[in-house]
Amino acid sequence: MNWDHWVGSRSPGEWNGVEKGAVRNFAEAIGDPQPLYLCEEGAKHLRYGRWMAPPTFPITFRYGSIPGLQLPKSGLIHGSQRFQYERPLWIGEEIFCYLTLKDVFEKEGKSGRLTFLTFERIGEDQKGDRVFTAESTLIVTEAVRRELSA
């Protein structure tokens, strides 16, 4: 599988709601029972008077897929992750999410050649303004890559 061909391609994208119940489940799953995420009263004491989602919450959204791009079903290693916000992500808002394959590069590792895939996930609000950019680097080992080509 040669991913270079898809660098710069993007998914059509999907709208995602920042649902209060989903944020509550997420906050509980990460052991963060913050009143900010969980109770109506809590919001009054916030700087912005509104609830914001936990910073890694955009990982739960659907971004659609890049047509034709195939990834191994297993064996992908998550190397690194970045979230950059233009403003806080508010609970209750609707976010349009899509992803692009930003970069593909290779490095020689201890157990053979490693392929690094950098995906950028983008979230925009209803005005079309960007809210966040989330960059994930995934690592494919030579063994997994060979299996995919077979």
């Binding site: 963060d32 913050q34 900010l36 004491h45 916030l46 700087r47 914001m52 936990p54 910073p55 890694t56 998550h78 190397g79 690194s80 992750q81 970045r82 979230f83 950059q84 916000y85 806080p88």
Partner: peptide
Amino acid sequence: SPYLKYGWVRDFYTRF
């Protein structure tokens, strides 16, 4: 989380 009443997380990066 205890400080979210004063501010917010703008950038967050980790390597695993």
